[in-house]
């Protein structure tokens, strides 16, 4: 399994390098970091030269990424010229913020999706099943920003108007007051979790149904096992195999920063700095975010594969 992991990582590296190279060139040719300096030349020649120096703009665009890579290999991901801080520092701080909504959202979504899948599969075609399936169809149809805005309108704007209770905040992370932080985090967490629950519970229901109707579940019942043991031990253990894979991929998507949700709720995570960094352009910052999310994607993909092998004894990696 260790050898397999190493091999998987090694085969992904060339792909990753090509991706990084293309993104660097893509950002370089589509944006002009000198735009604001051109207008004030020659008054601001000094600033102009600093940017040329910073991004090696005197070199060919095809060579420039290598300069960045040479630094990156030594662990120097450059400096964000917007934040004025090293990229790694910004990534770390923003990453923690992203995790503050990603991890609760992931846990909430996973637990809910699991419970709903089991319920729907056990009560197939019941009224509850129809309602849940309908809701998940509805949930899947919501783009993240629409759902975020709807929740924002209902809970952060209308609820205080109607009841006078100010429970939820949308203005981003402003204080260290723990109650207010929870109030701020809740809506983005619920938004993300809802989106994932809608998709996962449909998938989970299908996986669970397939298992529940299989012969070995009948065998388990024929042994005289309790229904609880049949469902939560025999059926769930099998249905978990595809679900865990899905969760690993979900989690990497969440941790990579949910650009849209963070933007709707002005939450200062990784996602929220991406668009400004691209517009500026804050090239080192963009590259930092790309490499961060790419690594997370690769790692969690691998993790998904390995978990698959752990959960399913029929799979062997060697």
């Amino acid at each position: 399994m260790f050898a397999y992991s190493i091999r998987r990582i090694l085969t992904t590296i060339p792909l990753l390098l090509v991706a990084l190279y293309l993104v660097y060139i893509g950002v370089s040719v589509t944006t002009d970091p000198l735009a604001e300096f051109r207008l004030c030349l020659p008054r601001c020649q000094e600033g102009y030269d600093r940017i040329v120096e910073l991004y090696n703009l005197d070199q060919s665009v095809f060579v420039r990424p290598f300069g960045w890579a040479a630094d990156a290999i030594t662990g120097d991901f450059g400096t964000s010229n917007v934040a004025g801080q090293p990229v790694s520092t910004v990534l770390w701080e923003r990453g923690i913020n992203s995790a503050m909504i990603a991890i609760p959202a992931f846990l909430l979504a996973a637990v809910l999706a699991l419970l709903l899948s089991v319920y729907s599969a056990r009560r197939q075609y019941s009224a509850g099943d129809y309602v849940l399936t309908g809701l998940s169809f509805f949930g899947i149809a919501f783009p993240a920003f629409v759902l975020g805005l709807v929740l924002q309108v209902i809970f952060a704007i209308k609820l205080p108007e109607w009841t006078g209770w100010k429970l939820f905040y949308t203005g981003g992370k402003r204080t260290d007051n723990i109650g207010e932080i929870i109030g701020t985090v809740t809506l983005p967490v619920v938004t993300l979790a809802t989106l994932f629950v809608a998709a996962d519970s449909r998938f989970g229901r299908a996986a669970m149904l397939e298992v529940i109707n299989s012969d070995f579940i009948r065998t388990a019942r024929a042994k005289g096992l309790s229904e609880r043991r049949v469902i939560w031990r025999h059926a769930l253990r099998n249905a978990l195999i595809p679900l865990v894979t899905l969760w690993a991929l979900n989690f990497s998507a969440l941790l990579g920063g949910s650009v849209i949700t963070e933007s709707v709720f002005s939450w200062p995570g990784l996602g929220q700095i991406l668009i400004p960094a691209l517009q500026r352009p804050d090239l080192d910052m963009v590259m930092g975010i790309v490499i961060f999310t790419a690594i997370i994607t690769v790692v969690f993909n691998l993790l998904a594969d390995l978990l698959y092998g752990v959960l399913d004894p029929r799979i062997r990696y060697d």
């Binding site: 990753l16 991706a19 893509g26 650009v259 991406l274 668009i275 691209l278 790309v290």
Partner: peptide, 11 residues
């Protein structure tokens, strides 16, 4: 592998 949102935004 490339985050879609980045390509989309850039282009």
């Amino acid at each position: 592998v490339v985050p879609a949102i980045i390509v989309l935004s850039v282009v």
